[in-house]
Structure formats: C-alpha cells, structure tokens
C-alpha cells in the first residue's frame, strides 16, 4: 500500500441514540479522486470531520499509509468544511498568509503561495479588502484558496461545488484534477452526481451511516442491474417471463424492456429471443450514477 494512501478504517460514531457512522471504511490512493455521495445526514460530514480530527470517533481509525494520522499530518490536509467560514474582518491576503502559517509554512513561503493563489483565483486587486466586503462568489474563491494555500498532501472537501457559479465550478474541477494528477489523494462530497461521475475515479455511497457501495464508477454501474431493450417482432407475449434473473418491466407490441440482475448473462437472453424468430434491436443500458444512487437509497428506505 502506498505510503500516502488515506485509509479510513471502521469508523463508528454515535450521537445519543443516533448512529452517525457504522463501521465506515474506505481508502483513497495518491492521485485518486474519490467522490463521497449520500443523502443529507447520511454521515459524509461526520466522516470528514473525523478525518480532520475536528471530531473524535467512538471507534475506528484514520491512517495515512499504515500509520495512524498525527496532528502534524492533519495540518498537511487541505480542508473545506461544509459550513464555510473565514474571519470576516480580516484582509484576504493576511487571512491566507495566516492560515498557510498555521499549516506549517514559513512566513516567506506563506506569502509566495498566497500571492500565487490570489493570482490564480483572480483576486489580486482585492487582496487588501476585508473578506466580508467581497461578493459571495469571491468569498468562495478565497475559501478554496484557504484550503489549498499550504500545498496540502491530502484534500478533503465537503461540498466544494455547492454555491459555486458555473465558472467557479470549472475552476474547482480543474484544481481537483490538477491536485490528483500531482499525486494527492482527493476526497470530496457532492450532491451533483453528474459532476462526481465525470470527475471521480471512484465513489463511495453512504446511507444511514453505512458505506453501501464503493468502487470505480464503471464497476458500480456495470455491477448494478442493467436494463435490456429487445425488439423481436415475432415473439409471443410473455416470451421472456420464464428466464431466470430477468424481470419484465414493459412489453408493448414487439418491444420488451427487461431488467437484468447483475449476474445474468445477457447473451442467454439474446439466444432466447432469437429462438422466437427475428431480433431487430438488442441494446443494454447501464444505469447512470444518479440512477444507481437512487436505487441504493430507495433500497435502504424500503428496508
């Protein structure tokens, strides 16, 4: 295992009678973008706060490589909390320099890095303005710069895309890709599943404090039940209902829509269809992450 891999191992956290996290584990390798999705209150923020040491877990451990995380290592994480916050009456430049120093940068280093990020975020002219005097969009940029100014070894971002305008979403996406390309493990949570699907190498879906699905987006969607559309003009009604691992969703005229269980071989279905005569159309559709997520979450609520 790589020495910089962020390992979250069996985290548990209870608030009174509420279980916020129930043996949540995941790993983010260097250079990997890990998307953390789940409904509100599923436990994403709690897990991230435990990684940062802002909250203590009841049990479980956060490791970097094999070693338990230390305060020194935590200072090398770039963190954007769900509740955004900066000193409202402190100038942008002073604020970023201060945060960089708290994260271990020397004074010179902190200034150099701050100037670089101010330029990147197009905030150079506002450097001496108080944060509270900036527009909301610019405040978000300062917030991102605050998470990145110390050139972190790990990025943990809670809803980094929420409240961003489209341009800022592009900047944020580019920054996340860039950091990952530089070998930094990146974890972020988001409700914008199309973004997660586009950006992430792997995702974890959390429901009621439990990690219910985890893996590469491709793996997850191909492992999930997929739908099959078959057009067989000569097939008798109910031709597919006896097939194992197949559920008929819809049968209109010659078109049949089937749902396949993950283990079902679609070639067997094709052979069955061909036995009825001509097959003019046969297409398999993988679910999108959004559909997958909806399925996973609905399964949970049915239990």
């Amino acid at each position: 295992m790589d020495t910089n891999t962020l390992n979250v191992v069996e985290l548990c956290k209870r608030y009174g009678d509420v279980t916020a996290l129930d043996r949540v584990s995941f790993a983010v390798r260097p250079g990997e973008l890990f998307g953390f999705v789940g409904s509100n209150g599923a436990g994403k923020t709690t897990a991230m706060r435990i990684i940062l040491g802002v909250l203590a877990a009841d049990s479980g451990e956060v490791r970097v490589g094999h070693a338990p995380i230390t305060p020194g290592m935590r200072a090398r994480i770039g963190y954007m909390p769900e509740e955004r916050g900066l000193y409202p009456k402190m100038a942008v430049l002073d604020q970023l320099v201060y945060l960089a120093q708290l994260h271990g940068c020397s004074a010179d280093d902190a200034h150099t890095r701050t100037e670089r990020w101010l330029a990147r975020m197009d905030l150079r002219e506002r450097r001496h303005d108080e944060v509270q005097k900036l527009s909301l969009g610019n405040q978000q940029r300062v917030q991102l710069a605050a998470a990145l100014v110390h050139d972190p070894d790990v990025l943990v971002l809670d809803e980094p895309f929420s409240g961003l305008d489209p341009v800022a979403v592009d900047v944020m996406s580019a920054v996340l890709r860039e950091k990952a390309a530089a070998g930094v493990p990146v974890v972020f949570s988001s409700h914008q599943l199309d973004l997660v699907e586009r950006l992430c190498d792997r995702v974890g879906i959390i429901r009621d404090g439990q990690m219910v699905a985890q893996g590469a987006v491709d793996e997850l969607t191909s492992a999930a039940s997929s739908t099959l559309r078959v057009v067989a003009p000569e097939a008798p009604s109910g031709w597919a209902s006896h097939l194992t691992g197949v559920r008929v969703l819809e049968e209109v005229d010659s078109q049949t829509v089937l749902q396949l269980e993950p283990s079902t071989d679609e070639q067997a279905v094709l052979r069955a269809a061909l036995e009825t005569g001509r097959v003019t159309e046969f297409s398999k559709q993988r679910p999108s992450l959004t559909e997958l997520f909806r399925n996973v979450v609905t399964e949970g609520s049915q239990q």
């Binding site: 706060r49 940062l52 040491g53 802002v54 305060p71 935590r74 200072a75 994480i77 963190y79 909390p81 509740e83 955004r84 916050g85 900066l86 000193y87 409202p88 945060l99 708290l102 994260h103 605050a146």
Partner: peptide, 13 residues
C-alpha cells in the same frame, strides 16, 4: 459565528 473555527481546529489543537 463566522465558522472559521472549524478550519482553524483542523490545523491546530
């Protein structure tokens, strides 16, 4: 009230 404390406490004790 400004919520900056969470960023601070992620870096310092």
């Amino acid at each position: 009230s400004s919520r900056v404390v969470e960023i601070l406490l992620a870096a310092v004790r």
